[in-house]
Design a protein around this nucleic acid. Structure first.
Length: 352
DNA sequence: AAAACGGGGGA
DNA sequence: TCCCCAGTTTT
């Protein structure tokens, strides 16, 4: 229906100039953009890039200030206990990022702060995107970033509905302004975040509209096509609340889900295993006496949904202050069940 | 090159 | 509920 665009490549220099010129007057002022263009503070950029992985800038801003205040330098971060780092990260999600940040800081205080793409890529938690971002923004290395914004902007500019990763990287490499790599990368991401947005792009305000095939098609949101997503599977689990909302028995979560954080003692349910069975297993492990069920909380993640049955229980184990521990939203919800019980016919004491 | 993995918030 | 966010790692 839409006629094939007469597309045989873009006037690259004109596109670069239009984008950089737009960026020079409409780019965002962000707290990790201190210092000269192409010579930002690598520590501040690195922390920001990790924080912004799969996290929107508006949310990241809240955590950024908190984290930089707690750990103003790579030395301060490396010397801090991991629990303090996780506590600063609490609520932010993807907690492996905080563990990798701490680990990488340790590598850097002994091995030095890398100044190249390859050096950054070798650090834990740093992939192609972050290595390109830090090396270009802080060291002006000519590396094109490839993130969700870049993917969308380029898919639209070139009218590609199904952009593969290699395709996006090749286009980004070809378009990168070698004279200002750091600014160019910041510019594409700003354009994607403020103009070339997923659902309501403002093509009339876009500096690249004249060359954009998706805009010309009249249906820019069709580029790129939405990704097919994997089904979300339910994961059943049981947990016990021993104590109260202020002091409770907590244990460190092992494994991939919320790993490293503290939480109510819990056990995953085997497929087809009854909750009572898992509860018995849990209480045996803890040497605890099970009490009444407090309720069920659910916690959605990208491809899993945790369905957690929470029970009161009693044991001689030491309670720890809840406030000091780094907990996920899941455990905050579970602890919230206690609040719901107050004022009911039975006091909490009766339940245990 | 594609799939798996992993938290959260906004509409 | 669905969408996707300045991705990384594994297959």
């Amino acid at each position: 229906m839409t006629p094939a665009p007469p597309q045989q490549g873009k006037p690259i220099p004109a596109v670069q100039e239009a984008l950089l010129s737009w960026f020079d007057h409409s780019g965002r002022a962000l707290p990790w953009r201190l210092g000269e263009e192409g010579a930002r503070d690598p520590y501040r950029v690195w922390v920001a890039e990790i924080l912004l992985q799969q996290t929107q800038v508006a949310r990241g801003l809240v955590y950024y200030e908190r984290f930089l205040t707690a750990f103003p330098s790579v030395q301060a971060l490396a010397e801090a206990p991991i629990d303090a780092v996780l506590k600063a990260w609490e609520g932010c999600g993807y907690y492996a990022r905080a563990r990798n940040l701490h680990k990488a800081a340790g590598v850097m205080v002994t091995g030095g702060v890398p100044s190249t793409y390859a050096g950054w890529l070798a650090l834990p938690g740093v992939g192609p995107y972050t290595a390109a971002a830090v090396s270009s923004l802080a060291f002006n290395e000519g590396r094109a970033v490839n993130d969700g914004n870049v993917r969308r902007v380029l898919a639209r500019l070139y009218g590609e509905r199904l952009p593969t990763e290699p395709w996006v990287q090749a286009r980004a490499d070809a378009l990168l302004a070698q004279s200002r790599p750091g600014a160019f990368n910041e510019a594409v991401m700003d354009l994607g975040a403020t103009i070339c947005t997923p659902k309501a792009p403002r093509c009339e305000a876009c500096p690249l509209a004249a060359w954009c095939e998706a805009s010309a098609s009249g249906e820019p949101t069709a580029f790129p096509a939405p990704k097919v997503r994997a089904a979300v599977r339910d994961v059943g689990a049981v947990a016990v609340l021993i104590g109260n909302g202020e002091n409770a028995v907590l244990e460190r979560r092992q494994g991939a889900l919320l790993g490293g954080l503290m939480g109510l003692p819990s056990e995953l349910r085997e497929p087809d295993e009854a909750a009572a069975e898992a509860l018995a297993r849990l209480c045996t492990r803890l040497d605890a006496t099970p009490g009444a069920m407090l309720g069920t909380v659910t916690h959605a993640m990208t491809h899993r949904r945790i369905v957690l049955d929470v029970y009161a229980a009693n044991s001689a184990q030491a309670r720890t202050p809840v406030q000091d521990a780094a907990l996920s939203r899941l455990d905050h919800k579970a602890l919230g069940l206690l609040e719901a019980r107050r004022g009911s016919l039975f006091g909490v004491q009766d339940l245990v």
